[in-house]
Simulated scan of single mutants.
Amino acid sequence: MVSPEILTNLRKLNRADKLYVIQVLVSELAQKEEDLIKGEQSYPVWSPIDAFEAADVMLKVLEDSRSKK
């Protein structure tokens, strides 16, 4: 459990210092989570290159907005 004194002191910090504390804590948590991302493994990343259906929808919306003017 977090002591009220720590929370009180954290609330007194300015915005930049609060963000720094968050960064330090998240970094420490991430280092302890060894199973999340493994260094020698590849991960799939989505790319919009072959998203033809999405491009068609966006083109139709653009054409509709132009015709309404």
Rank of each mutant, 00 (worst) to 15 (best):
M1K: 10
V2D: 01
S3D: 14
P4M: 06
P4C: 06
P4Y: 10
E5F: 13
I6M: 04
I6T: 04
I6V: 14
L7S: 11
L7H: 09
L7V: 11
T8C: 00
N9W: 04
N9R: 10
N9A: 12
N9L: 11
N9Q: 11
L10T: 10
L10N: 03
K12R: 10
K12S: 13
K12P: 02
K12Y: 01
K12Q: 15
L13D: 03
L13G: 02
N14V: 01
N14I: 11
R15Q: 10
A16L: 06
A16V: 11
D17F: 00
D17M: 05
K18R: 15
K18V: 02
K18A: 14
K18G: 05
K18E: 05
V21D: 01
V21C: 07
V21E: 09
I22W: 04
I22N: 05
Q23K: 15
V26N: 05
V26R: 12
S27H: 08
S27P: 00
S27T: 15
E28S: 04
L29N: 13
L29F: 07
A30T: 11
A30L: 15
A30P: 03
A30S: 14
Q31H: 12
Q31Y: 08
Q31F: 08
Q31L: 06
Q31M: 14
E33W: 10
E33G: 09
E33V: 04
E34L: 10
D35Q: 14
D35E: 15
D35A: 08
L36Q: 07
L36E: 02
I37G: 07
I37Y: 12
K38I: 03
K38H: 07
G39I: 03
E40T: 02
E40D: 13
E40C: 00
E40N: 12
Q41E: 12
S42T: 12
S42I: 13
Y43V: 14
Y43T: 07
P44M: 04
P44C: 07
P44F: 11
V45K: 06
V45W: 01
S47Y: 03
S47L: 12
S47Q: 11
S47G: 09
S47C: 10
P48V: 01
I49K: 13
I49C: 01
D50N: 15
D50Y: 02
F52M: 02
F52N: 07
E53R: 04
A54M: 08
A55D: 12
A55I: 07
D56Q: 10
D56F: 04
D56Y: 08
D56T: 12
V57F: 06
M58H: 06
M58Q: 09
L59P: 00
V61S: 03
L62T: 04
L62V: 09
L62I: 04
E63F: 13
E63W: 04
S65A: 15
S65F: 05
S65I: 06
S65L: 08
S65P: 00
R66L: 09
R66G: 00
K68F: 03
K68R: 07
K68S: 13
K68V: 07
K68W: 02
K68M: 13
K69S: 11
K69N: 12
